[in-house]
Amino acid sequence: MKAILNKLYNHERLSKSEAKQVLIDIAAENYNDAHLASFMTVFMMRPITVDELSGFRNALKELAIKVDLSDYNTIDIVGTGGDGKDTFNISTLTSFIVAGTGQKVAKHGNYSVSSQSGSSDMLESFGYNFTNDEDILRAHLEKANICFLHAPKFHPAMKAVSATRKALALKTFFNMLGPLVNPSSPKNHLLGTFNLEIARLYNYILQAEDINYGIIHALDGYDEISLTSGFKFFTKKGEQIINPEDLGQKRIQQSEIFGGNSVADAAKIFKSILEGKGTEAQNNVVLTNAAFALTIVDETKSFETAFEEAKDSLFGLKAKRTLEKLVSL
């Protein structure tokens, strides 16, 4: 690691193979906490390259405990986190709304690093038991239309750095990697990033693959459609800027999607929205994200049609029953 760190301190870049090997060594716990913190800090101070991100991703995918869910045409709905906005759990709520429409969801997630509550914090608070057993995950998809893939159960490298990431309490390149390394390799992705540069990196990497995807970066820094501003949207067809008004939505204030100061606060908001008791702003944010997810799976579907399907899932309490079913299994 000393040689790698000295190279990075000299403003050199890692090749794809070097980046891959470092991650393999991290997974093997070959480095101490100080080395890990120093290594992660480098990528907070300068942009990561395509080769570096690809190499890190290749290592994580190679080392992952893989599960085959290809029979279900699943979608993953996930953001990088690390946007520092402390919203309620938008992508997780969106996942349950999408599952409530009948679309299968293989949600990849983790504990929060830089906000009050991540997807794993939320599901754990509801009594969900994390698993990497393929048969159990398939049963969850069959019976609840959704399964949850808790990253440390599948990625030894993430587990190896979890204490260091938590101690840093800052976004690192692992935030960038999470959405790219779902161990079930779904064919559909709605991904969010906390900055535009990462969105472009994702687009560069994913456009070469045989998958459907949409990448979102809100122009005011959110890693999801926030309706507080316009957002950049990347697909294989190109990129565009979309404003809330283009979707028939009102712009909202950041305070309207605040997630509280604890997991308990976030869970209360989560349950309230699933019970159909969310505010107009909260509802419209999750419904808009859900509609975009549905149009990624079926590109012939209009946003308006998908939005109505999402509304039926939320206000018909299908999303609520999906969560209840998942936790009961």
Rank of each mutant, 00 (worst) to 15 (best):
S185F: 10
P186V: 08
P186H: 03
N188Q: 12
N188M: 11
N188K: 06
N188F: 07
L191H: 00
G192A: 06
T193W: 01
T193Y: 01
F194R: 15
N195G: 05
N195D: 15
I198C: 07
Y202C: 01
Y202P: 01
Y202Q: 01
Y204K: 12
Y204L: 08
Y204C: 11
I205K: 04
I205N: 03
L206F: 05
L206K: 02
Q207G: 02
Q207P: 06
Q207L: 10
A208H: 15
A208P: 01
E209Y: 03
D210I: 02
I211M: 10
N212G: 11
N212R: 14
N212P: 14
N212V: 14
Y213G: 00
Y213T: 00
Y213A: 00
G214D: 04
G214K: 04
G214F: 03
G214W: 02
I215H: 01
I215S: 04
A218C: 08
A218R: 04
A218V: 02
L219A: 15
L219Y: 06
L219H: 08
D220I: 04
G221L: 08
G221A: 09
Y222L: 10
Y222I: 12
Y222H: 13
D223Q: 03
D223L: 05
D223F: 03
D223T: 02
E224H: 12
S226K: 05
S226T: 09
S226Q: 05
L227P: 00
L227T: 09
G230N: 13
G230W: 08
G230I: 12
F231V: 09
F231W: 11
K232D: 12
F233Y: 15
F234W: 15
T235E: 06
T235S: 15
K237F: 12
K237I: 05
K237D: 15
K237L: 14
E239S: 14
E239D: 07
E239Y: 04
Q240W: 00
Q240D: 11
Q240C: 05
I241P: 00
I241E: 13
I242W: 03
I242F: 09
I242V: 15
I242P: 00
N243C: 07
N243D: 11
N243Q: 11
P244C: 14
E245F: 14
E245H: 13
E245C: 07
D246N: 12
D246Q: 03
L247R: 08
G248R: 13
G248I: 10
Q249T: 02
Q249V: 01
K250S: 14
I252W: 13
I252S: 07
I252T: 10
Q253C: 08
Q253V: 09
E256D: 08
I257A: 12
F258D: 13
F258E: 10
F258L: 10
F258K: 06
G259Q: 04
G260E: 09
G260Q: 05
N261L: 11
N261V: 12
N261P: 01
S262L: 04
S262M: 06
V263I: 15
V263N: 06
A264Q: 14
A267I: 10
A267F: 06
K268L: 13
K268C: 11
